[in-house]
Simulated assay, not measured.
Amino acid sequence: MKVASSPGIWATFRSLWLRAPLWRFALLSALLLTILFVLYPPKPLDGNQEPAAVVKNTADYLSQKTAAPVLPVPKTPVAAVAKNQTNPISGTVAVHSKPAVDVAAAAKTGATDVPANVMPKTASLSMVTADTDAKSNDSGVNNAIMGRLYSGSIQINGFKLPLPPGNWVKLATTSIKLPTSMGSGFFFGKIEHKRLVAAINGYVLKSKDNPGAGFVEAKACTQADPTRNFVFVEEVIPFDNEACWLIHSYFTPPLQQWADRSVKINLIDRAAAGDLAAKGVTYPQDLVDVRFIRFTKWGGMEVHYLFSPEAEGISSNTVMAYADMDWRGNNIGRYPEKVAYIDKLKAWGTAFWPKFKAGFTEAEPVPDLK
């Protein structure tokens, strides 16, 4: 058998090079890939490489923007409301101007919308657990995605937010910028065995001027509302001193559709619901809302303390709409055990109210000396 000579091989190569462009392209591509492989070899599969894709925890709705609302300030203040008014007269708070899109959400949940001109922000979470050996805490959620826990109290923009007993995790936050004031919105949760048993949401605001022009009337405490369970009005003087608290109900099913933009949900609630979904945490249909409101010329603070009756063994009827909730003021009379639960929260609110006011006072600025 004869072996082809070198001149014969070269002649064949030259003939293919000149007459076969497809072969020539394939040869050049193979040569280029070989050079790249030598210069940039792949990393060994040692188990430390990054995953090919990271799942976002709150989808892409966080990229939305909301225009800054405008607070109308009348030239003359509205007449004061009588002090220590305890009869049930209230409505939804309109103090803190909100996007029009959130009005329907308040009707569904019974909660006041959070004012904001920017979207809420949540902790950056990966659905891929970084440490499979991380221990779970009482929440039942792996520490690798749970986040920092808070207890006792927390400072927010100078305001001291008192926390009920237990450990609380931040679910969502947002910055608030209004024409005459700025501050923060927040949503915290208390989680046990991957179930939300309590929550805290609300916002704090500080006037850009000292002392500032004040804020509009807290109508949640001054307008009649048969769906509310209780109200205590210490004083409500619009654009001056406002201090009151009340008990209402909060309907959670709309939050389960947090990823559906067509469903009108409060912005901070939407972000928190997305974070709960990322953590694998569920929540009951009904929560009871103990809402504290405190405003003066230089700033304001409104906080909803949401409690789950389910956590104390009190069940609720499954309903399709907020209007049918057992816990609404015009429905609760049929359920003696639920009335007793509201009475228990009245006692809690009475004891907690001074702590809330003290936390508000901590943020009071030093008066300007002119």
Rank of each mutant, 00 (worst) to 15 (best):
residue 20 A to D: 14
residue 249 S to E: 12
residue 180 T to Y: 08
residue 136 S to G: 07
residue 96 H to K: 04
residue 300 G to Y: 05
residue 160 K to I: 14
residue 79 A to P: 00
residue 10 W to Y: 10
residue 247 I to Q: 08
residue 267 L to G: 01
residue 172 A to Y: 01
residue 339 V to L: 10
residue 146 M to D: 08
residue 122 T to D: 06
residue 17 W to T: 11
residue 322 Y to F: 15
residue 162 P to S: 04
residue 306 L to H: 06
residue 163 L to W: 05
residue 264 K to V: 11
residue 32 L to M: 12
residue 278 A to V: 03
residue 179 P to C: 01
residue 46 D to L: 10
residue 129 T to Y: 09
residue 308 S to Q: 06
residue 84 N to Q: 09
residue 124 S to G: 06
residue 53 A to G: 05
residue 11 A to Y: 02
residue 280 G to A: 09
residue 276 L to T: 01
residue 364 E to H: 06
residue 139 S to N: 07
residue 79 A to T: 08
residue 196 L to R: 06
residue 98 K to R: 14
residue 94 A to D: 15
residue 71 L to S: 09
residue 64 Q to D: 15
residue 121 K to M: 11
residue 111 A to T: 06
residue 8 G to K: 15
residue 321 A to S: 13
residue 11 A to E: 12
residue 262 S to D: 10
residue 69 P to T: 11
residue 301 M to F: 15
residue 139 S to Q: 07
residue 69 P to K: 11
residue 263 V to P: 04
residue 257 Q to P: 00
residue 268 I to F: 00
residue 31 L to V: 13
residue 183 G to H: 05
residue 306 L to N: 05
residue 175 S to K: 10
residue 246 L to W: 02
residue 148 R to H: 13
residue 262 S to F: 03
residue 300 G to S: 13
residue 207 S to F: 00
residue 162 P to D: 07
residue 292 F to V: 02
residue 139 S to F: 02
residue 231 V to M: 13
residue 149 L to V: 09
residue 142 N to W: 01
residue 204 V to F: 05
residue 1 M to T: 12
residue 17 W to N: 11
residue 138 D to G: 04
residue 260 D to Q: 13
residue 195 R to F: 04
residue 60 D to F: 13
residue 119 M to P: 03
residue 174 T to D: 02
residue 108 K to L: 15
residue 310 E to T: 10
residue 211 P to T: 04
residue 107 A to I: 09
residue 258 W to M: 05
residue 90 S to T: 08
residue 159 F to R: 04
residue 185 G to S: 05
residue 338 K to M: 12
residue 260 D to I: 06
residue 191 I to R: 06
residue 171 L to Q: 04
residue 358 A to F: 00
